[in-house]
């Protein structure tokens, strides 16, 4: 019968459109990740009484293991409802004036939440932890337009240092440089974690200005260099100098977008 002949032809022809790839086993391209072309800053807005926050720390750590912790700079910003010191054992104060200011500026009210290179997605700077992976992987392969080099020296309770900026490409907008001090291996309780939870890359404070140093010019030609010196930054009483690092990043003052970031341990 004609109909069966036609249907048979259709079934054969439909093979043309059935191309489909079912991914089995691992969903990751293990071992073949190309080296990132630039660095990315991931601000993990978190709190010690936030139950879902440890899962975000794991995601951040996984991403650092994937791309290297020198390429993906993670900073834990303790701010908002779940970061405020409460009753024991969650009575330690992780909050900072700078962290509170960023938290308000970015409009973050639920935790955990991330801000990646301070890039807006739609109307928001913040981005859900499950979307950190795709966002980070995209930004890590953008073109590198400048390099940031940090020198930091610790002396008793004082940190001195400098941030050098090498312009690989010219810059034609006003940029600023934020310098932070972060601390690793702080053992303090974390809800849904442990009483002896290890808090890493915790933001301790901004050097001099919350919103950073303004670069002296708004135009720099490719190949030029500028630097910012800082001195006499006094660390907190319970901070451990050997666990401290300095994170510095250059960002566009108008869009707030991070152009380049780096991190260096404080030399003792």
């Amino acid at each position: 019968m004609k109909i069966f002949k036609i249907l048979f032809t259709i079934i054969i022809a439909s093979g043309l459109f059935t191309a489909c790839d079912k991914i089995e086993g691992s969903y990751y391209e293990s071992g073949i990740i190309p080296p990132p072309t630039t660095r990315v800053l991931l601000e993990d807005y978190t709190g010690h009484t936030c139950v879902a926050c440890p899962s975000a720390h794991v995601i951040a750590e996984d991403l650092q293991n994937t791309y290297g912790d020198t390429n993906l700079i993670v900073v834990a910003v303790h701010a908002g409802t779940f970061a405020n010191p409460g009753s024991s054992p969650y009575d330690y104060d992780f909050t900072t004036d700078a962290g509170d200011a960023y938290n308000t500026f970015f409009g973050i009210t639920s935790y955990p939440n991330g801000v990646i290179n301070r890039v807006k997605t739609g109307n928001n700077y913040f981005i859900d932890k499950n979307q950190w992976g795709p966002a980070v992987s995209k930004l890590l392969y953008e073109k590198k337009t400048m390099e940031v080099t940090i020198e930091a020296n610790g002396n008793d309770t004082i940190i001195n240092g400098s941030v050098k900026i090498d312009f690989i490409e010219g810059l034609n907008s006003q940029a600023k440089v934020i310098i932070w001090v972060t601390e690793d291996h702080i053992i303090k309780p974390q809800l849904n974690g442990a009483l002896d939870y290890e808090h890493n890359h915790v933001l301790r404070g901004a050097v001099e200005h919350t919103w950073g140093y303004t670069l002296s010019s708004s135009t720099y030609s490719a190949g030029s260099t500028t630097s910012i010196e800082f001195s006499d930054y006094r660390i907190g009483e319970d901070w451990v100098m050997k666990n401290l690092s300095v994170v510095a990043f250059v960002y566009d003052d108008e869009t707030k977008r991070v152009i380049q970031v780096n991190k260096a341990h404080v030399h003792i």
């Binding site: 059935t18 191309a19 489909c20 991914i23 990751y28 391209e29 073949i32 190309p34 795709p134």
Partner: peptide
């Protein structure tokens, strides 16, 4: 039947290039 082809250029995930 509809099938979409898009190259997998993602460095992290193994993505299906043909989705039916």
């Amino acid at each position: 039947l509809i099938s979409k082809y898009q190259a997998d250029l993602d460095p992290i995930y193994k993505l299906p290039e043909n989705v039916m």
